[in-house]
C-alpha cells in the first residue's frame, strides 16, 4: 500500500493529473452548478468549443507572423469571454431560451472558424489544437497546472463571494432588479468568470472532459439535493470521483482517462433520475397511506365523510 502511494506521489505526471482533477472538480462545483441553475448547461460546451476556435486563431496569427505575440491561450480566453458576453447580452431580458440560441450560434461560429483555420496551420500545431478538444489529463505540464490553479482560485473566490447574488439573479431576475440589485452586472460577472475558467480548463484537459464534468454532475445533484450548498458539495464529490476513477482505470487498461471520467459523470445523471423516480414513488405511496389513516379516525369523531353524492349538488 505504502509502496503504491510512494509510486503515485513520486510520479510527477500522476501528481499533476490528480491536482488537475481536484481543480476541475472545484470549477464544476462552482461554475457548473451555477450554469445549471441558470438553465445554461449548454454554455459549458459552447465556451469549450469557442476556446478551440480562439486557439486556432492564435496558432494561425502566430504562424503567419501577423501577430507573433498572440498566444493561442489568449485566443482561447478571448473567444470564451466573447461567447459569455454574447450569451449575456441575449439573456438580459432574463429569458433562458434566448441565451441557448446565442450559445448555439457562437458554438457553430467558433467550430467553423477552427476547422477553417486548421488548413493554414502546420500539422504539428494542429495536433496541439486537437488537444483542446480531446486533451489528456496525464499530459499536463507544470505551466498548465499553474494556469489552472490561478483560474480556479478566481472562479471559486468570485462565486463564494457573490453566491447569494447569483442565486437571486437565477431565481428571480426581474425581482432582483426591481429590488435595486444590479442584476445585469452580476449576470455578466457570473458568465464571464465561468467562461475564463472553462477556457483554461479546456486548454488543460480538453473540451469533452470539461463539459462532461461541468454539466452531468451538476444536473445529477440538482435532481436529488435540496440546497444550494448541498448541490455544490455533491458536484465536487461526483466530479472528483469520476476523474480519479478515470485516471486509475487508464493504468489498468489502454483507455483515455477523459473517456472513463465522462462516462461515469454521464452515468451519474442517469442514476440520479432513477433515484428521483423511486423516491417520488415512495413519497406518493406514503401520502396515499397518510390519506387513508386520516380519513378513518375522522369518521369515529363523528365528522361527516363526504358521500358519493357530494360535489353533485348543483
Amino acid at each position: 500500500m505504502i509502496d503504491l502511494l510512494q509510486l503515485i506521489f513520486g510520479t510527477p505526471f500522476i501528481v499533476r493529473a490528480l491536482i488537475a482533477a481536484i481543480l476541475i472538480a472545484m470549477i464544476a462545483s462552482t461554475s457548473g452548478t451555477f450554469l445549471v441553475f441558470r438553465g445554461l448547461s449548454f454554455m459549458a460546451s459552447g465556451v469549450a468549443h469557442a476556446a478551440l476556435g480562439g486557439a486556432a486563431l492564435g496558432f494561425f496569427l502566430q504562424e503567419t507572423g501577423f501577430f507573433p505575440w498572440f498566444d493561442p491561450v489568449l485566443g482561447a480566453v478571448l473567444f470564451a469571454v466573447l461567447v459569455a458576453v454574447m450569451t449575456g447580452y441575449a439573456g438580459e431580458s432574463g429569458i433562458a431560451q434566448k441565451m441557448e440560441v446565442a450559445v448555439g450560434v457562437s458554438f457553430a461560429l467558433s467550430m467553423s472558424l477552427a476547422v477553417f483555420l486548421m488548413y493554414y496551420i502546420p500539422s504539428d500545431k494542429v495536433l496541439v489544437l486537437w488537444g483542446y478538444l480531446v486533451g489528456d489529463i496525464l499530459l499536463l505540464t507544470n505551466q498548465d497546472v499553474v494556469l489552472l490553479v490561478i483560474t480556479t482560485t478566481l472562479v471559486v473566490a468570485v462565486i463564494l463571494m457573490l453566491n447569494k447574488e447569483f442565486v437571486y439573479v437565477s431565481v428571480d431576475y426581474e425581482g432582483a432588479i426591481a429590488h435595486g440589485m444590479n442584476a445585469r452586472a452580476y449576470h455578466y460577472v457570473m458568465l464571464v468568470v465561468s467562461a475564463i475558467a472553462i477556457a483554461l480548463a479546456t486548454k488543460a484537459v480538453g473540451a469533452i472532459l470539461v463539459y462532461a464534468i461541468l454539466v452531468a454532475p451538476a444536473a445529477a445533484s440538482n435532481e436529488l439535493v435540496k440546497s444550494v450548498t448541498g448541490v455544490m458539495v455533491a458536484v465536487f464529490s461526483i466530479a472528483l470521483f469520476a476523474q480519479v476513477i478515470g485516471i486509475m482505470i487508464s493504468f489498468a487498461i489502454a483507455v483515455s482517462p477523459s473517456a472513463i471520467a465522462g462516462l461515469i459523470a454521464a452515468f451519474s445523471y442517469v442514476v440520479a433520475l432513477q433515484v428521483r423516480r423511486i423516491r417520488e414513488r415512495a413519497r406518493d405511496q406514503k401520502l396515499f397511506e397518510a390519506d387513508k389513516e386520516e380519513t378513518i379516525p375522522a369518521t369515529f369523531e363523528g365528522v361527516v365523510v363526504p358521500d358519493d353524492h357530494s360535489g353533485h349538488n348543483h
Binding site: R38, S170, E174
Partner: peptide, 12 residues
C-alpha cells in the same frame, strides 16, 4: 412577479 417568472431549477 408573476409566479411562472420564478425559476424552479434552483434548489431553494
Amino acid at each position: 412577479p408573476q409566479r411562472d417568472h420564478i425559476e424552479l431549477t434552483v434548489p431553494m
